[in-house]
Design a binder for these strands. Structure first.
Lengths: 334, 334
DNA sequence: TTGTACGCGTTATCAC
DNA sequence: GTGATAACGCGTACAA
């Protein structure tokens, strides 16, 4: 249990320095010596104390993953992509959730993780929020996921384009009164939300259609929120014939609201979601799907790249989205 | 940036020892001194190096969370419960996924995390699998989630009872040919899977019904697997009139298989799932719901308890399940 | 190629 | 209540 590098050195008949070199695969060590040391370490189940090696080397061997949610579909899937890549490196994944409702006396991620990790992965958080700002100010490697920011590595999709494609699809089906189920109440600066909404507006205006303020309802990115939003939209004097929900979970809620009123998605009101949630297929909901797991994986790889080659130029990777047309946006043949 | 405890000590006009004591809130320090030290630390944005602190104290300040999946509904939700509790402690959450397909040269979690964490949380993994065995052999605090094992802390539900309740519900509806969509092909020793199946068998036998081997199909805990299983079940000479899927995701797949064949869940074939997935409501699927987030939260609390009071007696917590009856298991009135 | 010796930043054990 | 100082386990110049 309490094995130290000295125990290995003694057992292998070499110095601690040699043990250190052998175990880390440094070149300047005789291969016979290395094998012997490794065999001893293996036999004694020795692993170098990360704390001691960090103290000596300055490298902490961890990456911090900062996310607003861990259980929601998008975030959980991005996280799994991150995990898969990190698993193959020798870096540990330290998970840090910044609560949605900003609790006052929370320790900000930058302060808490600074000495613990060598770099950060930030999932779908506003790059200009205080927490992320602090993290970026650390001048450690950072890769943003789902958002871009000048002079920072990032992996994201083109949310504006995605919003435009979804809306255009609805327009192509002949709809004119198209509603938007957005995220939060106020126009937040959070880019995915803002960008998808902008894509909606652009497509509408380009088609010469008006964006009726009554037809914009916040859904808080939740199923329940989406349901409430849809209910509100159905209650306006002249209800929409089509709805673009900027997340699939809100689209699910919208479908539920329709069913409550005995309305048929696709036939009575067209619905398009966003994300490519695995169950949108099952629910037959049209959606703009994004490569969620890959987003996380590429971001992790980009971070590893920077960690091993510090002077890599910063890159902003853009991944494609794909419109998955399903029954919810196509009027059933009558 | 490169602040050390000595910088704070100098600035506050005290020794490093006093800084250490003051910052950790140890009792034997004058309150005026403590306030002064804290003010300086705050101003200089000083945080003690976890590595140095671990080396000196022996405490690593992290807990390892071992899980087979990070994106699947059950695991993501348990993880969120864990995170919520750990956030309020001063322990970091180090996430470690043990791949499903056992890759040969993977570093086992015990070796990798031993010196990095002070305790483990193991999510729905077989307590007797090699990886978990090694972890338990570390004689560090461990709390199992979703499984029990002698002499180990754990938080779980009663899966046997859950399986029995689901099956009994189907029996009560008058069904006699009831199928089971289980997890993997072979009878794995993984307890939730095994226990739910056992509950099924018990209920069937108690009702004097036969368990037809043809009516047991593996669904691999995935939507696609559940769909394939249901398709297979519909193809047997005398198909079942009701199906118990031991996970909601597999139940979702079963519903899809039914739809493909123009069959109506509830009317043509009754379906009951297991987990309480948020979308089972939307899909109108009856399920045995379990308090997933709470499972993770309680497990984390139990671990924190053991970490602060090492001689706590080991506890095995059992949380209740709840049958949520919905349309998929009740014949529509014709 | 290998060994020696120092330093990394903090905590704990003593004295005072 | 406070201050010196010796560990803690490892990486790494530097010397051999």
């Amino acid at each position: 249990m309490g094995m130290t590098i000295r125990d290995i050195a003694r057992e292998a008949g070499v110095s601690t320095a040699t043990v250190s070199r052998a175990l880390r695969g440094l070149p300047n060590v005789d291969s016979a010596t290395r094998d012997r040391v490794r065999a001893v370490a293996e036999r004694l189940d020795y692993v170098a104390s990360p704390a001691a090696s960090q103290l000596a080397s300055g490298r902490s061997g961890g990456v911090g993953v900062i996310t607003p949610f861990v259980a929601r579909w998008y975030f959980a899937n991005v996280l799994s992509g991150v995990e898969r890549v990190l698993q193959r490196s020798d870096l540990d994944l330290v998970l840090f959730a910044v609560g949605d409702s900003d609790e006052p006396h929370r320790v900000p991620p930058a302060r808490r993780l600074r000495r613990r990790v060598e770099g950060f992965l930030v999932i779908a958080l506003d790059p200009d929020s205080p927490d992320v700002r602090e993290v970026r100010a650390l001048d450690m490697p950072v890769t943003l996921i789902g958002a871009h920011h000048e002079r920072t590595n990032s992996v994201a999709i083109d949310d504006v384009s995605g919003g435009r494609i979804a809306t255009q699809h609805l327009i192509n089906q002949g709809h004119k009164r198209i509603a938007l189920i957005s995220g939060r109440q106020l126009p937040s600066p959070f880019s995915p939300e803002w960008d998808r909404s902008r894509g909606f507006t652009e497509a509408m205006e380009q088609a010469g259609l008006v964006v009726d303020p009554d037809l914009i309802a916040p859904g808080c990115f939740t199923v329940d929120g989406g349901e409430a939003a849809m209910a509100a939209l159905l209650a306006v004097p002249e209800p929409p014939t089509a709805v673009f929900a900027i997340s699939d979970e809100m689209a699910f809620g919208a479908v539920r609201a329709l069913r409550r009123q005995r309305l048929q998605p696709g036939t009575d009101v067209a619905i398009v979601g966003f994300d490519g949630h695995e169950l949108s297929d099952l629910l037959d909901i049209t959606t703009v799907s994004q490569p969620v797991v890959q987003l996380g994986a590429l971001a992790a790889e980009a971070l590893l790249e920077v960690l091993s080659h510090p002077h890599t130029a910063t890159r902003q990777i853009q991944l494609p989205t794909q419109l998955m047309v399903r029954g919810s946006s196509i009027a059933a043949r009558r």
